[in-house]
């Protein structure tokens, strides 16, 4: 339950059986997407994860590059049969992102872990 792995710029914690919470920090370098995806997926596969919550509480703005990273990670999670749910979207981030989104995201969204997702 309290097992977690330290990844560069993010904190991945198993919060339930097969359910993980990913909390990115400000130092997360999304230009190294390949390494990040491999590291996250390795941990999820090891624990036979079925769901990954991605916490966006610390991000007041999500630019297209970050959106691309979220979609990429969500698709990669889908490839190992794990769903990705973005939680705690900030109103400012949702507002800005809705303006430059052209297709629906590869991830689903929820208000928080407590709410249905």
């Amino acid at each position: 339950m309290n097992d977690f792995a330290k990844l560069p710029g993010m904190h991945l914690t198993e919060i339930g059986r097969g359910v993980f919470l990913l909390e990115p920090s400000r130092s997360l370098d999304i230009s190294a997407q390949d390494e990040l995806v491999v590291a996250v997926l390795a941990r999820l596969q090891q624990a036979e994860a079925s769901k990954l919550y991605y916490d966006l509480a610390a991000l007041p703005l999500i630019e297209p590059l970050y959106y691309q990273w979220l979609n990429r990670l969500a698709r990669a999670c889908g490839a190992i049969n794990a769903g990705m749910v973005c939680i705690n979207f900030q109103p400012t981030a949702a507002f800005a992102l809705a303006h430059h989104m052209e297709t629906p995201p590869a991830f689903s969204a929820a208000l928080s872990i407590r709410e249905r997702a």
């Binding site: 973005c86 939680i87 979207f89 109103p91 981030a93 949702a94 507002f95 992102l97 809705a98 303006h99 989104m101 629906p104 995201p105 969204a109 929820a110 208000l111 928080s112 709410e115 997702a117």
Partner: peptide
């Protein structure tokens, strides 16, 4: 559509 997308992103 933008408004709907933003609401959905919030998780509603």
């Amino acid at each position: 559509i933008q408004m709907v997308r933003a609401v959905q992103l919030m998780g509603s």
